[in-house]
Design a protein around this nucleic acid. Sequence first.
DNA 1: ATGGATTGATACCCTGCGAGCATCATGTTC
DNA 2: GAACATGATGCTCGCAGGGTATCAATCCAT
Lengths: 299, 299
Amino acid sequence: MFTLDQLRGFVAVAEELHFGRAAQRLLMTQPPLSRQIQKLERAVGARLLDRDQRSVSLTAAGQAFLEDARRMLATADAALARARRVEAGATGTVRLAFTAGSALGVLPTILDVATRSLPDVHLELVEMVSIDQVRHVAEGSIDVGLARPPFPAELLGSVLVQRERLLLAVPAVHRWARGEGPIALTEAVGEPLIMYSPAEARYFHDLLVRLMPAPGPRVVHMVTQVLTMLSLVAAGRGVALVPESSRRMRLEGVAYRELAGVPQEPVELHLMWAKESRNPAMHALVEQARQTFEPGIPL
Amino acid sequence: MFTLDQLRGFVAVAEELHFGRAAQRLLMTQPPLSRQIQKLERAVGARLLDRDQRSVSLTAAGQAFLEDARRMLATADAALARARRVEAGATGTVRLAFTAGSALGVLPTILDVATRSLPDVHLELVEMVSIDQVRHVAEGSIDVGLARPPFPAELLGSVLVQRERLLLAVPAVHRWARGEGPIALTEAVGEPLIMYSPAEARYFHDLLVRLMPAPGPRVVHMVTQVLTMLSLVAAGRGVALVPESSRRMRLEGVAYRELAGVPQEPVELHLMWAKESRNPAMHALVEQARQTFEPGIPL
DNA sequence: ATGGATTGATACCCTGCGAGCATCATGTTC
DNA sequence: GAACATGATGCTCGCAGGGTATCAATCCAT
């Protein structure tokens, strides 16, 4: 088999059609170049150059081989550059998981930051609930997640990217739908409540259980998705506590009221990644996100 | 700069993920192989392999470089064969790219047509996803592609060679696996769905997004290859929508059902080439394909 | 805990590939 | 036919790269 140096020699001679000048261009003397070409022709098993003591020309086989040789050399250069860029984190692929809720809120910002500051990094998006994200990120099948706590801190790093209020969603036909101002949580628990499932939507479930005063509300449904929850509210099945960003869904038949008697912005969303991951593009993305969000979040 | 031998060494180690076995495969001992890789990494200027005393794995840069390395080695082999054929007086060569999916469907027919009507034209085959095909055909490093739309019409010509149905693939243990008759798409979206990646498998991704009714399915995985998709189905991770031809893979643990509520044959495959190419053998092949397929496709 | 097994990295040796220099063979030009 | 130009060949030598022996770190079984 031939070597890349032989290819470079061949391309130079094919372009100059002159061994001496080609050797000069390659910063070498003419004799080794001659032998390089001979060796290449033996390796290929075909005459590539016609040299008749006075001038050099390409054979048909040489013309065909020249194309391939140029292509190989170009690929070689490109491969170097590409590998270096990947290592520097300037290019590559990041697999990003997000919760359905974050698609309405902070995900567009993240995508914006990523495409602006890392234009050559390719993003693969997968929708996934928080606990599944934690598993996939820990396993390495996903690089970063937009998810809600808790995370196993020894494996995963995380940075807070969003805090938001909890609103009360009520049916449009409900007596509270037309009112103004906040409604006290103590008052709200008198209504039938649509609750989050403790398994798939553990974060919201636990958050609400912590906030609820002792007697506890009357739970009429347990669901996983905020969208399902709002559909049930619209159908008049009860009221629900939802993060403010879900208001952007603009669902027919649902009205929102502020809540009193709850912490100001209790709903957190984090960007989360495997600490020991060796995907430089992922680390670059996280760094960008950190710079964008970390100082900007009023705590 | 690196050498082809170093590339061969790297590819072997990347495939075996083990220096000893890779060295065995290359008919050499392990120490020089280790140094070959070190030298390659120095030449590239990036770590390509993570080796932690016990196991070897590819870095992100290594994954990117592996693709290029494989391409260079393949080009090297092809260049030898091509130069020899040209010297032997054989007429032309056509480099044909195909998607993994088309290998099961229309590719055999194309090969049949080509070898029957153009016996002296040599065909080089490369497997490649559609977007890569478009790039390579536009650049001229591939002559024709069997790919899915869209194509930039000002650069590339194309002709439809296949339309096929979309089937629902379900795990063999699923309750639908033993049934008969079509399943409505509206019913199917209730199941967890394995989806196509929007980047590498853009055609299928966009097609499914267009077909899906509003609430949207629960996407549990995003993959690029139909084979991966069917493996996940076989593993019981969810259901998938796949082109009918993939049925020929006969994967254990997967059952197929027809779909109702979708267009009859929504999956298209085209033969596609660079209009301004000067490869006569390529144009002859395209002409043959056009005659074979153009009238035969019932639209 | 401890000794053996596994695996990639190092030390050292040695062969041979390939570069340079000098020179040859052949063809062109005046 | 002499001077020149150009690619090929003979010879020498340095070093790239392969082999053997061995080390260092880790895993595993007892």
